[in-house]
Simulated assay, not measured.
Amino acid sequence: MAYETDNRNFLMLLTQQLADAQSLLDIGCGPCLILDDLPYKHIVALDIHRPYLINRVTKSEHILPLNADARMIDKLFVPKSFSAVSFIDSIEHFSKQDALGMLSKAELIAKRQVIVFTPRGFFPQENIDHFGLNGEEFQAHRSGWGPEELEQLGFEVTVMKGQHDHRNPAFVSTFGVGHPPVDALLAVKNV
């Protein structure tokens, strides 16, 4: 059964659950907004939209950008290559079928954990790239996720109540200012 919290500090909740912070493959990293805040010693930041990587907010030496299609991770990395594989605000950008395939591949690539952070349910998002880098095609949401289905896949799920709200430009664009907040899911699977 999913744990619910009003704590909206994603980084703190995630850091508390990390089993090994040696290396991370972050799938769909965008412009790498939070990667400097993660405790991993080595990070591969993978994104299909090259402008996100070229214009990333961090140039830290421990973060290596990689421009590739995430659906091909099993061709790019051998099994047990990283301590963890994460999908932070990215799994919802894939069809359910593609996402399930990537999660299975991630379990083979990760030594310790697969991490997912995503809105709860379907959060419609189209024709928007709030980074202003012409990535609208890649920012569209194609799937929604519930805590029960992630638990069925073996994830331990934390429901972060009200995580998405009027402070998020994509939320306001989709739902409007007065809409009630939308929960987020932080799901971790130990492999």
Rank of each mutant, 00 (worst) to 15 (best):
L150N: 07
D165N: 14
P169V: 02
H166L: 09
F155Y: 12
Q152T: 09
I115N: 07
E156W: 03
R112F: 01
G146C: 13
P147C: 03
N168K: 01
T118A: 13
T158N: 08
P119E: 15
F138I: 06
L108V: 01
F171T: 07
Q139A: 13
N134H: 09
G121D: 07
G135E: 02
L133A: 07
K105Q: 04
Q125V: 14
T174G: 09
T118L: 07
H164Q: 15
A170W: 01
L133W: 03
L153S: 14
R167H: 08
H164Y: 15
A170M: 05
N127M: 00
D165Q: 14
I109H: 04
L153K: 14
S173I: 02
E136C: 10
A170R: 04
N168P: 01
G135L: 05
A170E: 12
F117G: 03
P169D: 04
K111H: 02
I109A: 07
R120V: 02
G162Q: 11
K111E: 09
P169K: 06
P124E: 10
H164L: 09
T158Q: 03
E126H: 05
E149R: 09
G144H: 11
E151N: 07
F138T: 08
E149L: 11
G154T: 07
R167K: 10
M160I: 15
E107Y: 00
E151S: 13
G135M: 06
H166D: 12
F131A: 13
N127E: 01
H166K: 15
H141D: 15
Q163E: 05
D129C: 01
R120F: 08
G121F: 00
P147Y: 08
E149F: 00
P124Y: 09
F123E: 08
I109P: 07
Q139T: 12
V172C: 10
Q163T: 09
E137L: 13
V157A: 14
F155A: 11
I115E: 08
E136M: 13
V157M: 14
L150Y: 05
A170V: 08
R142H: 15
R142G: 13
Q113C: 10
D129Q: 04
V114M: 02
E126Q: 12
P147V: 01
F122Q: 14
E126N: 12
P147Q: 09
F117K: 10
A140M: 01
P169H: 01
L150E: 06
D165Y: 09
A106M: 02
F155M: 04
Q139P: 01
V172Y: 01
H166Y: 08
T158S: 15
S173W: 02
A170H: 11
T118V: 10
F122P: 06
S143Y: 04
L150I: 10
F122G: 11
F122D: 15
R112M: 05
A140C: 09
F131W: 00
M160F: 11
E126T: 13
Q113A: 09
I128Y: 06
A106L: 00
L133G: 10
E107F: 05
Q139I: 00
E156S: 15
E148V: 00
H141E: 07
E137G: 03
F131E: 06
H141W: 13
W145H: 11
Q152W: 02
E149K: 00
T158P: 07
A106F: 00
H141V: 08
G162S: 12
A106C: 03
M160Y: 11
V172F: 03
V116T: 02
